[in-house]
Computed example of a mutant assay.
Amino acid sequence: MRSHNFDSIQHGRRRLVMALPLMACGLVVAPVQAKAGVHQVSQVLMGTRVDLTLQDDDASVLPAAAHAAFAEMTRLADMMSRYRSTSVLNAINLMAGLRPVPVPAELMQVLQMARQAAQASGGQFDTTVGSLRDWNFDPEHPVIPSAQQIAAQLSLVDQEHGLVIDEGAGTAYLTKRGMRLDLGGIAKLPILQAGLRQLQRHGLANAMINGGGDVLVMGRLNGRPWRVGLRDPRHPEKVLGMVSLTQGFIAASGDYERFVMQQGKRLHHILDPRTGYPTQGPHGVTLISEQLEAINGLGTALMVAGADAGRARIARTPGVDALIVDADNSLWLSPGMASRLGRA
C-alpha cells in the first residue's frame, strides 16, 4: 500500500502556473486573484509541490508565517523520508533486525497512527510495504521487479508483527533484517497539519495548504469558504464538482498520478501488502473530514480493500464523506459527499 513516496516524483513537471488552477492528485484548487491581504507561495516538499494561500488584514505578517510553516514541514519531512540517508526513518530501516532506534515525538505519533490504521483496516494498510523496495514508478526510469523478487520481499511485509513501538522508551524497531518502512501513505497529512499549526501560532485564521492530493483549510478566502474541485479519476483532466470548506481535510488517492505501462497494463504506485503488486480495486478515492485521524491512511486502505468494502467502511465511519470510483468506472458518493457537491 505504498502511496505518495517522499522525494520520488519528478519535480520539473510540477511548475507553478499562476494563470491556471492548481492541480494535484485528485484535487483542483481555484486560482486566487491578486488582492490585498492575500499571499501565495509554493515549495517542493515530500516529492510534490506544496502551495500555501494565506489571507490576513495585516499582509505584512504573511511572509514570515509562510516561512515558519515551510520550515516546520521541511523539518518533519526530512525526519520521515526513507530516501534521505540522515532521516530517523532511514535509521529505523537500517537497524532492522539489529536494535531499536530512538524516535522524536512527531515520528512516534505518526507510527502510532500507522498502527491504528493497520488495525482498523485489518492489515490492508501496512507501512512495511517499504520492504517491496524494487518497484520504481519514475516514468523516465521505471523498474518492475520480477515475481521472484516480489515473493522474496513479500515475506518482510508484516507491520502487525514486524514493527515494535515502545512509547515508554521512545523507540521503534523492525524485527526482521531487510524490513523497511514507507510512511508515504500516513505521514503527509500530519506534516501538512504541522504547517497549519505554525500559521495559527502566527495569528492567522484564514489559510489553505494544498499538498499533492491533500488539502487543509481553515477560515475563509475573501469572506467566503474555500472552494476545492474534486478531480474525476476516470478523466483526470476533468473536475467532478466543487466543495466548499471553512475547516477540515481533503485527502485523495488514485491510480492515475504515478504509474508505468507494461504490455498495455497500467501499474501504479499503490501496492497491495497482501500480494506485493499494485492494487486492482478502485481507480480513486477522495475523503473529507474535520478530523485528521478519521481519514489518515484510509484512502490507501480503501484502494486495497476494494469499492464494496470501502462503501461498508465509510458507512460505519462517522464524520467522513467519500467519493469512490471503482475499477469498472462506476461512481459512488456517500450521502455527505453528494450533499457537499450539490451545495458547491
Rank of each mutant, 00 (worst) to 15 (best):
S3H: 15
D7E: 14
G12M: 07
G12L: 10
R15G: 09
M18A: 12
L20I: 01
L22W: 13
A24S: 14
C25P: 07
L27Y: 03
P31E: 13
A36F: 08
G37Q: 12
Q40S: 10
Q43F: 01
V50M: 09
D56G: 10
A59W: 00
P63Y: 07
A65S: 06
A66H: 03
A68V: 04
A69F: 00
A69K: 03
E72W: 06
E72F: 03
T74N: 13
R75A: 15
L76R: 14
L76V: 08
D78A: 07
M79D: 13
S81T: 03
S85F: 03
T86G: 09
S87Q: 11
V88Y: 11
V88R: 14
V88N: 12
A96E: 04
G97R: 08
V101W: 05
L107H: 10
L107A: 07
M108P: 01
V110E: 07
V110R: 08
V110A: 04
M113R: 15
A114G: 13
R115C: 11
A118N: 14
A118R: 13
Q119N: 13
A120M: 09
G122R: 09
S131V: 04
S131E: 03
L132F: 13
W135Y: 03
W135L: 00
P139E: 14
P139M: 13
I144Y: 02
I144S: 11
A147D: 15
S155H: 05
E160V: 08
H161E: 15
V164P: 02
I165F: 05
I165H: 05
I165V: 11
Y173H: 09
Y173V: 00
L174R: 06
L181D: 08
D182T: 02
G185Q: 06
A187P: 06
K188T: 04
P190K: 07
A194V: 14
R197L: 07
Q198E: 15
L199R: 09
L199W: 05
L199P: 04
Q200L: 02
G203D: 12
G212V: 00
D214W: 01
D214M: 01
G223E: 04
P225D: 06
P225F: 02
W226T: 10
R227A: 08
G229R: 08
D232L: 01
E237H: 07
V239T: 15
L240C: 08
G241N: 04
Q247K: 06
G248D: 14
A251M: 01
A251S: 12
G254Q: 13
R258Y: 07
R258Q: 15
V260F: 03
M261S: 13
Q263W: 00
G264E: 15
H269A: 11
I270R: 04
D272T: 02
P273Q: 12
P273W: 10
T286H: 01
L287F: 02
S289R: 10
E290M: 00
Q291L: 12
A294G: 11
L298N: 04
A301C: 10
G306E: 11
D308N: 09
A309S: 01
A309E: 08
G310W: 06
G310Q: 04
G310T: 04
A312Y: 01
I314Y: 11
I314M: 12
D321V: 02
A322Q: 11
I324C: 06
D328T: 06
S330R: 13
S330K: 10
S334T: 10
S334L: 06
P335H: 03
P335N: 04
G336W: 06
M337W: 09
M337H: 08
A338E: 15
A338D: 15
S339K: 15
G342N: 11
G342Y: 02
R343D: 13
